[in-house]
């Protein structure tokens, strides 16, 4: 479980997050929604310890975040990854990055690590690209390889920042189906997304964020009014009867 208490975060004096109290239970498929600039990426970066806490407290599995991070890490899929297309790395080497932190300083990858990386690639259906250079991949393929890197370490918590950003519609469906499969296998998924249609289909818990928390509850309990309050006038809700 991830428990966030009284979290505040400011950047150059401007409040990015205010009074965040939130509990994310293990095994949930959590979606964080909100308009641009709502503090979604800041929140997940604070959870992962990539930004320093200013005020408030984060506990993971009953331990203070700093303590927890000494022995654990998150699986993470960034919205956008800066990389040089000419960088001399193979797809397999990129996926192995997800395991590199579990090895002691200076230790080398062994056959079992390579097998693990290949399994993660096979799981997302890209095993045949293992020896390709990363620069030869399409945007969608690269995003899926980053997912393989995020899942290879068997981390219990998987955090994704707008994974649908570089995928076309059919790929988004299959990508979320894959996430659901990982969730069913016991992983806690926390994803930032703008795609409310997809989220209503796959997610079990919704966090509506716009600097403050507007709601955090199971998806069936989140109504149009809350969504409207989170996004303000920027969203038009069309209700359909199925």
């Amino acid at each position: 479980m991830i428990k966030i208490s009284q979290l505040q975060y400011k950047l150059s004096g401007k409040a990015i997050l205010e009074d965040i109290d939130l509990s994310l239970a293990e095994g949930e498929f959590v979606a964080i929604i909100g308009p641009n600039g709502a503090g979604k990426s800041t929140l997940v970066k604070l959870i992962m310890g990539l930004l320093e806490l200013q005020e408030g407290r984060i506990e993971i599995d009953g331990l203070d975040q700093t303590e927890w991070l000494k022995n654990h890490s998150f699986g993470y899929l960034p919205q956008h990854e800066d990389y040089d297309r000419n960088f001399p790395a193979s797809v397999l080497e990129l996926v192995l990055m997800g395991l590199a932190g579990t090895l002691p300083l200076g230790a080398r990858f062994k056959k079992n690590h390579r097998d693990q990386a290949l399994n993660a690639l096979n799981e997302i259906g890209l095993g045949h690209l293992a020896s390709k250079r990363i620069g030869s991949l399409s945007g969608g393929e690269f995003q899926r390889v980053l997912l393989a890197r995020a899942i290879v370490g068997q981390n219990r918590y998987l955090i994704l920042d707008e994974p649908e950003a570089s995928l076309d519609r059919p790929s988004v469906e299959s990508f979320f189906a894959l996430l659901k499969k990982l969730n069913s296998a016991g992983r806690t998924i926390i994803t930032i997304s703008h795609d409310l249609n997809i989220l209503s289909e796959y997610c079990s818990f919704l966090v509506c964020l716009n600097r403050r928390l507007h709601c955090h509850n199971h998806t069936e309990l989140v109504d149009a009014q809350i969504i409207h309050k989170t996004f303000g006038d920027s969203v038009r809700i069309i209700e359909k009867d199925y």
Partner: peptide, 9 residues
Amino acid sequence: EMSRVFRIR
């Protein structure tokens, strides 16, 4: 930055 995320020293 990503190396830090994956706790590579």
